[in-house]
Design a protein around this nucleic acid. Structure first.
Length: 492
RNA sequence: GGCGACGUGGCCGAGCGGUUAGGCGAGGGACUGCAAAUCCCUUUUACGGCGGUUCGAAUCCGCCCGUCGCCUCCA
């Protein structure tokens, strides 16, 4: 099976061929740690986490690097506001980031480098650029000379001439050309600074990713990713620096995820229309956000709303229910069936798996992959419905159901990172944690007792009491469901 | 102004030259003590507008209208 990906650099769908298979080298630009991450960051993280999972499934050995920008203007400003140093701010939000990633189940990268730990490498890159005639020193600053790199603009598809015509670029006394960008900034009083051949200062934003990619992955990487809003100027500038030094392609494939919008407008700090990841996962199971993200193709814009979270929640419950209901079916009366041959469900599962993987191979078409999952869920629902109404299930059908539900669960878990806590080890802790945060811990034993009482009432046809218990539990956020195998309850 | 996307049924959202996407919602039915869950049926000129190419277009081309992104820090 060949994987096709959309390469921003060429603007085309291309077959994915790593430089040195089975190795796949991926670099994505991580967050600037000056505040909590929001849904926009979350989407990018989830998208690339999914790519990585799929590549690993295809048998590639993925080496994944995602950096932290832990020194920049915003961090410094924030530190000033709080009368503390920038490192305190950076460390605080790195911790917050890790907490978020664990909650939304994005696997850590293999290397998560910090800018402040790579100053030497950054200086080295800048020095090479100066030596090569691509950069110049100007009063303690160092700038990259955009006109010196002939391919400038190839990623974002714009030429320096056009950009000058558009000219919203701030002219600076120190720059020779308004399009030039800073590689090294001399530091002002009280700002973090490091010694360099050009005097004390700190790195500009665009060099760090080049230096860290060189160090941890090499001179040409397979995939460079990030949000669509990084294409220009950040990624364009990365290409200019890296390729000016090496004379060869920096990344073979440039992959960009679409942005998250709110009411059609980009979600961003500056507009103030953002929702933090923490807000999401304290209100919803983290899988709901994942599902929401995967329900849209990664390159399309994704308009966030709480209504959509509710929709995903429903869809999620259906998915989850199909898998969990195996436990109910198992406790029904299982009858022997003389029927020979294999159950047609096995074939359905096989073709679903094939369709699912094929969809992912087509530029990670997760919405289509998802649709195949749901068509199997419908199949399972039919079986379940029949078994419930007959109060029994054939042994062969039960095994087929188990096979199908395991296949569903495996794909979701492995490829999409969903339903991981259906495994008993993970569940309790997470649920309790969320309940503590929501501030409404319930005593499960007490609920079981009430359910028992209600079932006694039902047996006696005292539906008034039975319904009263159900209603009151419902008000407390406990939903009851009477199945042929007894009453089950869950938190709503 | 320049560059780049996008406009699909009640909503969301795949498809991108001929065959059922899928999800959510709504209405009806089956099941249930009633619910819930699940299933079945319905929501059958869906593809921004106007032209063009083609035996055939949501899918290709042109123009127009509308929305958004980037051009400044941003996942």
């Amino acid at each position: 099976m060949s994987l096709k990906v959309y390469n921003t650099l060429t603007g085309k769908l291309e077959e994915f061929v790593p430089l040195d298979p089975p190795k796949v080298l991926i670099y994505t630009c991580g967050v600037t740690v000056y505040d909590d991450s929001h849904v926009g960051h979350g989407r990018s993280l989830i998208v690339f986490d999914t790519f990585r999972r799929f590549l690993e499934h295809l048998g590639y050995h993925v080496r994944f690097v995602r950096n932290f920008t832990d020194v920049d203007d915003k961090i410094i400003n924030r530190a000033k506001e709080e009368c503390t140093d920038f490192m305190t701010i950076a460390n605080r939000y790195i911790a917050s980031y890790y907490r978020d990633m664990e909650a939304i189940r994005v696997k850590p990268a293999d290397v998560e480098p910090r800018v402040t730990e790579h100053i030497e490498e950054i200086i080295d890159v800048i020095q090479r650029l100066i030596e090569g005639g691509y950069a110049y020193v100007s009063d303690g600053d160092v700038y990259f000379s955009v006109k010196s790199f002939k391919d400038y603009g190839k990623l974002s598809k714009r030429s320096p001439e056009e950009m000058e015509a558009g000219a919203r670029v701030e002219p600076s006394e120190k720059k020779r050309d308004p399009l030039d960008f800073a590689l090294w900034k001399s530091s002002k009083e009280g700002e973090p600074s490091w010694d360099s051949p050009w005097g004390p200062g700190r790195p500009g934003w665009h060099t760090e990713c080049v230096a860290m990619a060189f160090k941890h992955l090499g001179r040409t990487i397979d995939i460079h990713g990030g949000g669509l809003d990084l294409v220009f100027p950040h990624h364009e500038n990365e290409i200019a620096q890296a390729e000016a030094i090496t004379g060869r392609p920096f990344a073979r494939y440039w992959l960009h995820n679409g942005l998250v919008t709110v009411g059609g407008q980009k979600m961003s700090k500056s507009l103030g229309n953002y929702v933090t990841l923490r807000e999401i996962y304290t209100r919803y199971h983290p899988d709901i956000l994942r599902l929401l993200v995967l329900f849209t193709h990664y390159r399309s814009p994704l308009d966030f709303s709480w209504e959509k979270m509710e929709e995903s929640q429903r869809a999620y419950e259906r998915l989850k229910g199909a898998i969990e209901d195996y436990e109910v079916l198992k406790s029904l009366k299982v009858v022997k069936d003389r029927a020979g041959g294999t159950h047609p469900l096995y074939e359905r599962v096989r073709s679903m798996e094939a369709d699912f993987l094929e969809a992912l191979s087509d530029d990670f078409n997760t919405p289509e992959a998802m649709s195949h999952l749901f068509s199997l869920v419908s199949e399972l629902g039919k079986i379940k419905n029949r078994a419930y109404s007959e109060g029994k299930i054939a042994g062969s059908e039960l095994s087929a159901y188990e096979f199908a539900s395991k296949s569903l669960h495996n794909l979701m878990k492995k490829m999409f990172g969903l339903l991981e806590d259906l495994d008993p080890e993970c569940s309790v802790e997470r649920v309790v944690e969320r309940e503590l945060e929501a501030g409404d811990v319930v005593d499960t034993k007490l609920i079981d007792l009430l359910v028992e009482v209600r079932n006694i009432a039902r047996k006696d046809k005292n539906f008034k009491i039975a319904d009263f218990i159900r209603d009151r539990l419902g008000e407390l956020g406990i939903e009851l469901e009477d199945t042929p195998a007894g009453t089950r309850w869950k938190k709503s």
